[in-house]
Design a binder for these strands. Structure first.
Length: 545
RNA sequence: GCCCCUGUAGCGCAAUGGAUAGCGCACUAGCCUCCGGAGCUAGUGGUACAGGUUCGACUCCUGUCAGGGGCACCA
């Protein structure tokens, strides 16, 4: 929302710097930030501080000279209608103060255009593929997958909203070792059900759901050799339903089995061979990933002739680029962090740039109940599943909680807190603000007429609220830059807080009709932004609670 | 041994390298004749340690200490 004026002010600064002969290497380094405190104006630049060393002069002196030039230029510019003051403050910051009309106009755009006013086109239609969850179809989704699902889906929502052409993809590991073990696990359980005693190996799938699959396979008279595929299909249906119930919908389920059939793996190998990035040693075929900064070279075909996991994955990533995606985002669990270098090496071997692939490591979530961590063990089939969390706290709270910490940080998720309906539970705090506004608007609908005068909104809390609304797109841009949606959860809590403070101090439905109309418009704007933010998080926007 | 994540108030956390480090819980004292008190106001209290980079460091770098996770010709 602020972008237009922000760019114009940066241009103004750039022109002044050029006039003063100081531009030098600083063309890209001019930044115009939102000050931490509104006492420091509406926008702030630290350019004088940055120039200080280069010019060997104190920052205040540089700032003072620059401000004189800025004021002269401003007087001749159309910007003078919006800017009231430019001044040097603190250690040498240059702060810009805007006229209140600027903010009233922005609010008016939001309430008249609604959600569309909040959209931007920073993505410019660029094609981005975001691959996430991609859990092996060997069991229900765990909380680790749940967090990846929440983060990936929300990030995809945000990127789409700011103008990217986004595809959500799930890489389906539907063949290979794990599927074989899955089939063997079902086979053993089936025999057990028929009265045969046998040893059940430790690395087989231990969960009780294997018995269910065995019974179903028996009913359908599935052949031994097909048990793995049957079980994978069976589990995949469960996974798909879990994701749907969590509000996550994939555009593409990319099958590893299909990839293998397509011949793309061999094609990828021959291209790597041409480029001399493959070699044989100890009976195995190696990929020379050290050429691109990996710690060691990696085996892609084992000495027994079978492929490692990396083999199809190399072809898969090359295929992503071949499908026209210019930006790949992968969400992986922390157990894959050592894998980043080799897959980046692979895309570089094909001539892509390292930064065309963003790998986001989604740290684990620990589930707590009343402050006590719940122990889990994947091996024994005892882990907290997405399904259990959904059943217990619902999709709204689950999504918010999985998103509310930096994705790269560990997350503690207390089921009891997520169920609480109080300020301890941030999802309720934000939704409550929305419901409260809806309640007022139900009793007194806003009618936007020509006589709507927002300039009567003079209170500190009112202006703070409008300014907070305008930070929405800054927030989304931070989410994009960090590939992390969690900042949006922080923003929505701050916006809700600004609203609750305003609400407590000032009556919306006032004696003064003009003021009432303006305040109704203000809360309508807050409702629009809250609803939009919640929607991007994939959380409902209740009108009543 | 190597790699990743984390260390901020009693607890849980926040702060795109920026100005006086914010919020919730808990504790203390207040606010409902009033649009939803699931809310608000005030008080108490903090950057693990040692260096470095920078005009400026919770933020970046190095080391130490502490906690969590990972280091296959598994996937």
């Amino acid at each position: 929302m602020n972008k237009d004026i922000q760019e114009e002010l940066i241009d103004l600064v750039r022109h002044c710097l050029t006039d003063l002969g100081w531009l030098a290497d600083f063309v890209e380094k001019i930044s115009l930030d939102l000050p931490t405190d509104n006492r420091f104006g509406d926008f702030s630049t630290n350019i004088a501080l940055k120039l200080s060393k280069l010019l060997k002069r104190p920052p205040q002196a540089i700032a003072a000279e620059l401000v004189v030039s800025l004021q002269q230029k401003l007087a001749k510019s159309e910007l003078k209608a919006l800017v009231t003051q430019i001044k040097v403050e603190g250690v040498g910051f240059i702060n810009f103060y805007l006229k209140e009309n600027y903010f009233y106009d922005k609010l008016k755009v939001i309430i008249t255009q609604g959600k569309t006013a909040l959209k931007s086109n920073v993505g410019a239609g660029r094609k981005v593929l975001i691959e996430f969850v991609s859990a092996n179809p060997t069991g229900s989704l765990s909380v680790a997958h749940a967090r990846q699902a929440a983060v990936g889906d929300c990030l995809a929502n945000i990127l789409f909203f700011i103008g990217f052409d986004v595809q959500r993809e799930y890489y389906l590991n539907d063949e290979g070792n794990q599927i074989n073990i899955l089939g063997a696990s079902v086979d053993l359980r089936l025999k057990e059900l028929k009265g045969q005693k046998n040893e059940f190996p430790e690395n087989y799938y231990q969960g009780d759901y294997i018995y269910d699959i065995a019974r179903e396979a028996d009913k359908q008279k599935i052949k031994d050799i097909d048990l793995g595929n049957f079980a994978a299909d069976y589990i995949l249906k469960i996974i798909k339903q879990e994701l749907i119930d969590f509000g996550v919908n994939f555009d593409c389920w990319y099958s590893q089995k299909q990839l293998a059939k397509s011949g793309k793996i061999e094609q990828a190998f021959s291209r790597l061979k041409e480029k001399k990035f493959l070699y044989e040693q100890d009976g195995a075929l190696w990929f020379k990933s050290t050429a691109f900064g990996d710690d060691k070279d990696r085996v892609i075909i084992k000495s027994d002739g079978s492929q490692t996991y990396l083999a199809p994955d190399i072809a898969y990533h090359e295929d992503k680029f071949n499908r026209g995606f210019g930006w790949l985002i992968n969400l992986w669990g922390p157990d894959h962090h050592g894998y980043i270098n080799r897959i980046k090496a692979a895309i570089e071997a094909f001539g892509h740039k390292s930064d065309e692939l963003s790998v986001i490591i989604v740290q684990l979530a620990t589930i707590f109940r009343d402050g006590q961590p719940i122990q889990m063990s994947t091996r024994r089939g005892q882990y907290i599943t997405l399904r259990e969390v959904l059943d217990e706290v619902g999709a709204d709270a689950a999504r918010f909680f999985f998103l509310m910490r930096r994705t790269s940080s560990h997350l503690d998720f207390d089921l009891e807190v997520a169920k609480k309906q109080s300020a301890e539970n941030p999802v309720f705090y934000v939704q409550y603000a929305h419901a409260r506004i809806c309640s007022i608007l139900r009793s007194s609908p806003l009618e936007i007429g020509d006589d709507l005068n927002l300039a009567v909104l003079k209170e500190k809390e009112e202006l703070a609220l409008i300014k907070k609304l305008l930070e929405f797109d800054t927030t989304l841009n931070i989410c994009k830059a960090t590939c992390d949606p969690y900042m949006l959860t922080v923003y929505l809590q701050e916006l809700a807080e600004c609203f609750h403070k305003f609400y407590d101090l000032h009556r919306v439905l006032d004696q003064d009709e003009a003021l009432t109309a303006a305040r109704l418009a203000l809360i309508k704007g807050v409702k629009i932004v809250l609803a939009c933010g919640l929607e991007l998080l994939g959380i409902t926007q209740p009108e009543k609670m």
